[in-house]
């Protein structure tokens, strides 16, 4: 594995967070997002993947007032400030749900299953949920 050194000399690892669950039915999506922000605050090389129902986390127009939960979809737009720039959405998952990249809250890189498989294989740490 090709660990490189960060600006303060710490080892930087490639962390991939794989989101597979829709946003509000379980706590996984929110918890995973918080973990992403913490990893990013520690200057790790973070990428975030959305497959299966995970793509629903990025759907525009979420309004959670009626269910008494925090709408965390705006936080995906803060990822850029945290230098998390690699957001991948699996094309097949998106299309299977009748969605397009234009309906998502942030710009993402839409990748094929094949491409995603390659990117996943290059990681030091993969955290799926």
């Amino acid at each position: 594995m090709s660990d490189e050194m960060g600006y303060q000399g710490e080892v930087v690892k490639r962390f991939m967070y794989v989101n597979r669950k829709a946003p509000y039915g379980t706590i996984y999506a929110l918890e995973n997002l918080e973990t992403v922000l913490i990893a990013a605050a520690f200057d790790q090389d973070v990428s975030v993947v959305f497959v299966d129902d995970g793509v629903y986390q990025l759907k525009k127009g979420q309004d959670t007032k009626g269910i008494g939960m925090k709408n965390f979809s705006p936080t995906f737009r803060a990822l850029d400030d945290y230098d998390v720039e690699k957001l991948y959405v699996e094309k097949e998952s998106l299309e299977a749900r009748g969605l397009t990249a234009e309906e998502l809250v942030v710009p993402v890189e839409v990748v094929s299953t094949e491409e995603l498989r390659e990117i996943m294989a290059q990681q030091d740490v993969v955290l799926s949920c």
């Binding site: 594995m1 996984y28 990681q123 740490v125 993969v126 955290l127």
Partner: peptide, 8 residues
């Protein structure tokens, strides 16, 4: 294995 990926 260098990396373990736990699918949940």
């Amino acid at each position: 294995h260098e990396v373990t990926n736990a699918w949940l």
